[in-house]
Every structure is written in structure tokens, then in C-alpha cells.
Amino acid sequence: MAMTDSPRWLELSLEADAELAEAISEALFPYVEGGVALEQTHRHPLGGEIASRWEDERAEGPIIVRAYLPDDETLAERKRKVEEVLAYLNMVRPTPQPTYRIVAQSDWADAWKASFKPLRIGRRILIRPSWINDVPSDHGADRDLVITLDPGMAFGTGLHPTTQLCAAAMEDYVQAGMRVLDVGSGSGILSILAAKLGAREVVGVDTDDEAVRAGRENVLANGVGDRVTIAHGSHEVAHGVYDLVVVNILAGVIIRMLAEGLASRAPRFIFSGILDAQASDVARAAEAAGLSITEQRAMNDWIGLVCTRRSKDR
């Protein structure tokens, strides 16, 4: 990194509608660190933006695409590639130019932590930031599945609807003794949840170094290191067959993985990270791969799909 005492990042952000935001995210994905964040916003009457991922109501307004490039020897080439793919997209459809700003990782983390509070998702899941000791005691705290989390720059705080869709579905489908594969594990939140729901073995995989680091630290902090392994790579590095595969990535990546044989890895799948405009494409890819859509869940503009492998394909 350019700074040894506090790593720095070049943050890029731009606004787009849902369909274009998805295309931009997929185009940027190979050149950034920690994945691409899609933040739904609506306009405050007095000006400014409010992140609607904190709210239950349907989002209004544009989606902010946000990503980070490490400020190191790869920065110039990564930025050139980013601007090149955005230029290609602009030939197909007008694409806004990104704005850039340098962010020190320590400053970014401190600002982010100030807004990350204990959060309840699903029926009895409580996400507790690692730096906060006091948590809400309502909603039957004795039954809470508490996940202690410090995601750093890895995706997966529990705030985003895609993570909440996965978590809620996992409450219904993870059973004691299962083997679970978490593809795109990010902070490790869903891998940890699978273990706390009773899975005997969980493998989380992610292609980002920072996500793998954060995921491993969070696994240890939650005392599930005996059942959860976080590995660098995609689903092919996790050997064997699983009882359930959870995939919380971009729609285009899900479609590609299905074409590459992901459907053979388990009898049941939970897919998320899908904007509602992309749900039909993912459903067609799943069906073509031998899966049946057994349930569809929605939150704001996001869709989660539960799929099972058709009996003749088992």
C-alpha cells in the first residue's frame, strides 16, 4: 500500500437506475477490492440522501454504485480499466461519470462504525457490532442468535436487503447437521449464521482477500471456528456435495455459476443479490440448470430465490 501506517483507498461512486446499476456493478467487479456496493437512496425533503437500506419501505430514487480501489502500485491500471469499461457501457446507454475521493482506511472505518448499530433481522437474529457491548434486550433475547461482527471493508453487515433475504430464508431451511456452502461469504455473516442455526460444517468462499481476512476474524470472534472454514476462491475450491448452498452475489455472477455447474453442488439453493429487474433472468438460468423455483421473497427492489434440484436431476 502507498501508506504503511494507514492504508488508503480511492472510492468511486456514481448514481444510476436499477438496471444500469447492475450492469455497472458487473463491469466494475473484476477491478475493485471488497466487491461493489449498491446503495438504494431516497431524497430527503430538506436535501441530501438517506440510505433506504435502513428502512422497510420500497426505495425511491437512484441507486448509488460504490466501489474501492487500493491506493497502491495497481491503482493506475485499475482506474484505467474502470474508465474503459464505463466508456464501453456508455456506448450502449448513457452512463454517468464516477466521482472519486481518497479515503484512509482508518478514517473510513471510524465514520462507518458510528452509524452501525445493533440490528435485528429475520425472526431472532441479532447482529452486534464487535465494538458495542450493550444490545437491545427485547424480542425474547434469551432466544437470540447473536452474531458479533466487524466486517471492515468486506460486504455483509446485515443492513443490506440482500443479506436480510438470505438470513431470513436460512432460518427456515438450515437444519441441524447440515453441510452448508456460502458463496461470496464477505464478512462471514451468513457462514456464522449457518453454524449458529445448527450446521455441522460450513465452508465460506470469497475471491477478495479483505473479505477472507475479515470473514476468518469474525468466525473466530463468534466461537464457530470448529465448524466454519473461510477459503479464498469461488465455489469450485469447496470440494464435495452440500445440503444447502447460499449465494449472495450479483445476478450476472449467479447466472454464470449456474452455467458452470453450480446446480450439482446441493439439492437446495438460496440465491440473493438480485435486483427485481434481473429476477426472471436468474430464474431462467436456474431452471435451465435443473433447478425449480420453490419460493421467491422480496425486500425493497431486491429478490431472493429458493430453489431445489428437480428429482430427476438428483
Rank of each mutant, 00 (worst) to 15 (best):
Q97C: 06
G198D: 07
L181S: 05
A109V: 09
A194S: 06
R80P: 02
A109C: 11
L193A: 09
S130M: 13
M170G: 08
N90P: 10
D150S: 01
T163N: 01
K196E: 04
L165A: 08
Y100I: 06
D134E: 15
P161Y: 04
K79F: 00
D110R: 15
Q105I: 08
A176S: 15
Y100H: 01
F155L: 11
L119D: 02
A176H: 13
K113A: 01
E84K: 14
L89P: 00
A87G: 10
K79G: 02
A154D: 05
F155V: 00
N133K: 15
M170D: 01
H139L: 13
D138C: 13
P118N: 06
E171M: 13
L86G: 09
L159P: 08
L89D: 07
G198W: 10
P161I: 06
F116V: 12
L149S: 09
L181Y: 02
D110Y: 11
A167E: 04
I192L: 01
P151A: 01
L119V: 12
A176K: 14
S106L: 03
L159R: 05
I127V: 11
A169S: 06
T99Y: 13
K196Q: 02
A111Q: 15
S137E: 15
S115D: 11
L149W: 01
S106M: 12
V146H: 03
M170A: 10
L86I: 12
Y173W: 14
F155R: 01
G156H: 02
S187Y: 04
C166K: 02
T148E: 14
E83M: 14
I147M: 07
R123K: 15
A114W: 12
A114Y: 12
V180C: 06
H160Y: 03
M91G: 15
V82D: 00
R120H: 02
T95D: 09
D138L: 13
L89G: 09
H160L: 04
A167M: 01
G177R: 08
L145Q: 11
L89C: 12
G198S: 03
G184M: 09
Y88T: 11
L181C: 12
T157N: 09
Q97N: 05
G158K: 11
L119P: 08
V82N: 05
I125F: 10
I121L: 15
C166N: 08
V180H: 01
P118Q: 00
S185I: 03
I147P: 04
Q97H: 02
I102V: 15
H160Q: 05
I125P: 00
K113L: 04
V92T: 12
W108Y: 11
T162N: 09
G198N: 04
G177T: 10
H139V: 10
I121K: 02
D182C: 08
R143M: 13
K81F: 06
I147W: 08
Y100P: 05
L145F: 07
L126Y: 03
V174N: 06
R93I: 00
L89T: 11
A169K: 12
Q105W: 02
R120W: 00
